[in-house]
């Protein structure tokens, strides 16, 4: 199979992730959308790595995974703090800062 298809798949995944951020009210789901975007990027890296016939892209993907994991920790911490305070994790709810 043409590895380029993986790139296209990555693009589609990226778009789905972005759509999740835009459309889902639940903070956790939106955050999952972000993770999906990151993983789409990983997929693209790996696919390109394959296309170019070298390993660099795959190594990069590992870096990204580690970073993404760290991000999850921080993200969840914040979401939990918000939940404790407001008893909700709706992204639309806290909207006092505006204008």
């Amino acid at each position: 199979m043409n590895p380029m298809n993986y790139v296209i798949l990555a693009a589609i995944l990226f778009s789905i992730g972005a759509a999740a951020v835009l459309l889902r009210r639940n903070a956790i789901v939106a955050f999952m959308g972000v993770e999906l975007m990151l993983n789409a990027a990983n997929l693209a890296l790996v696919a390109f790595s394959r296309i170019h016939g070298e390993l660099d892209g795959q190594i990069m993907a590992f870096f990204v995974m580690v970073v993404a994991a760290a991000e999850v920790v921080v993200g969840l911490a914040i979401i939990i703090a918000v939940f404790r305070a407001r008893q909700t994790i709706s992204l639309d709810e806290p909207a006092e800062l505006k204008g």
């Binding site: 990555a10 990226f14 992730g17 972005a18 951020v21 903070a27 939106a30 955050f31 972000v34 975007m37 990151l38 789409a40 990027a41 990983n42 693209a44 890296l45 390109f48 892209g57 990069m60 990204v64 991000e71 921080v74 993200g75 914040i78 979401i79 703090a81 918000v82 305070a85 407001r86 992204l91 806290p94 909207a95 006092e96 800062l97």
Partner: peptide, 26 residues
């Protein structure tokens, strides 16, 4: 409350932009 809200927004958008950046890198 404002602090939490700010953090949440900053985080979501920051992560979002990181993802965009990373995809650009790819």
């Amino acid at each position: 409350y404002l602090s939490h809200e700010a953090a949440l927004k900053y985080f979501i958008l920051g992560a979002f932009s990181s993802a965009i950046y990373l995809f650009g890198v790819a």
